[in-house]
Nucleic acid binder design. Structure first.
Length: 204
DNA sequence: TGCCAGGCCCTCTTTAGGGCCTT
């Protein structure tokens, strides 16, 4: 198990909707592996969920039914993705959403993962409390991170989440004096009451 | 065809409700 927060796999799903328990499936996975604070590997694939996606989803993601018809099935893509993530720790923006789909899709093919999730949304609420909101695009602007690609595509969103993550880790380093930042710290920080964050970082 | 969830977090709270965030 890796112990530093800058050795992590950042992932993002595009899906047919919000809930795998309601029958929604993944239609694209994108991920980047960060090691030593740099992106060292990437994974991206569309996947065919076996049914047509709604007009809303096509408009939201730019992923059409024609594109998905030519894509490999979810089972094939997710097996490759399970190999990609290995036992790495994992990160997503609003991780509870992506974790639900990762659990569901890997459950379909009886695969598991050993890593623990961290969440850039929970950390940004604690480290950037003055941001206008905590949507990914807004946080990138707030942190002065250039973003000129297509949001709501899995690889681009995972790349941007990785950049946001590194900025958040830099903020933690500046406020705590720690570098690299321990993974255990970010796990606990995500649950610290907002008003207790300065004290938490000073005392770690 | 149309519709759907759930965890976090705040407060006019905890015997609850509603906004935010993800697709």
């Amino acid at each position: 198990m890796q112990c530093n927060a800058n050795d992590i796999v950042v992932l993002d799903f595009e899906t047919t909707g919000l809930s795998p328990l309601q029958g929604d499936r993944a239609i694209e996975i994108g991920a980047v592996r960060i090691a030593g604070g740099e992106v060292v590997d990437r994974f991206q694939s569309l996947m065919n969920p076996g049914f047509k996606v709604s007009g809303f989803i096509s408009n939201y993601t730019g992923i059409s039914n024609a594109m998905l018809q030519q894509a490999p099935p979810c089972a094939e893509v997710m097996a490759d993705f399970a190999d990609f993530i290995g036992d790495s720790n994992l990160l997503a923006h609003n991780a509870s959403f992506d974790k639900r789909f990762l659990d569901a899709e890997l459950g379909h093919i009886k695969r598991r993962y050993a890593g623990e999730f961290s969440c850039s949304l929970l950390l940004s609420r604690r480290l950037y409390p003055a941001a206008p909101n905590h949507q990914l695009a807004t946080l990138l602007k707030y942190a002065n991170i250039a973003a000129d690609g297509d949001f709501h595509r899995a690889l681009y969103d995972s790349e941007m989440t990785a950049k946001l993550w590194l900025a958040l880790l830099q903020t933690i380093s500046e406020r705590s004096g720690l570098s690299p930042v321990p993974f255990a710290l970010v796990k606990k920080l995500a649950k610290v009451p907002k008003k207790s964050v300065p004290e938490f970082l000073a005392q770690w």
